[in-house]
Amino acid sequence: MNKVYHYIICFLCWLALAISLVLVLGVITILVVKGIGAINVSFITQPATNFGKEGGVLYQIIGSLLMVSVAFLLSFPIAIAAALYKSEYLKDEKWQHRSDMLLHILNGIPSIVFGVFALLFFINICGAYISWWLGSLILAIMMLPILTFSSYFYLQRLSPEIRESCLALGLTKGQFIRSFLLKRSFAGAVSGSFLGLARILGETAPIMWVATIFAGAGIPSSWNEPVATLATHILILAQQANHPLAVANGWGASLILISLVFILAAIGFAMRRKQLQVQ
């Protein structure tokens, strides 16, 4: 009886693993095989035409990288400053817990809600035009929790002895922060940055109303212009799923996007692992 039970459970475990592996490998294979079929030099170097059914994704790649870089530049200093404050000045336990919870909530807000907020606040209430930098702005907000936590935890892992020695030497808090902690908070935030960038690079919902348009966006040459991104481009192509050309280009754009996300995430994970080892 026990033996039968054992075989049933073992069978279920192996079956489940097999199904999961088939799904996982299947998805990866489809994305890689179909994607490679669509990518060639001109795909990467030509702009899109005919709603993406023809041409390449040059503007999309540039647009994605531009938007994400600016988001990073906006988010990084604020996150580091917030992490420094939380680590060095915030002594009240209650507020530590509350800020933890607020950051977790911010991190868990669905992307579409960010998109709705962006539309509502920037465009409707503040009256801005569809602009590429609004996309960077909302993406920067999305990156804040992960950057802040990343920096904060690295600051927390500083041994108390070092802290005490610096203060014993007569440094004020401000000098201590400027000369020592600033560099450390930077280092802590960097690994989180790559992971955060990997996430926002693939985001569509937050930016689709405030930074992109259905077709025709090029590389923005001024502030108030929309931009094309890989993620929204894939959305446009997916909505034309009846046209095989659109689908083919969709796979190509997907593979490029995944590759960029993968590179960023891999760097982020490697840096995080190194950080954990060094301590």
Binding site: V24, V27, I28, I30, L31, S111, A198, R199, L201, G202, E203, T204, A231, I234, L235, L237, A238, A241, V247, G250, W251, S254, L257, I258, V261, F262, A265, F269
Partner: peptide
């Protein structure tokens, strides 16, 4: 981990196609 990092729009493409 790789699969967990794939953007959701790409899952959308997989779904539709």
């Amino acid at each position: 981990e790789i699969l967990a990092g794939i953007p959701s729009i790409i899952y959308g493409l997989l779904g539709v196609v």
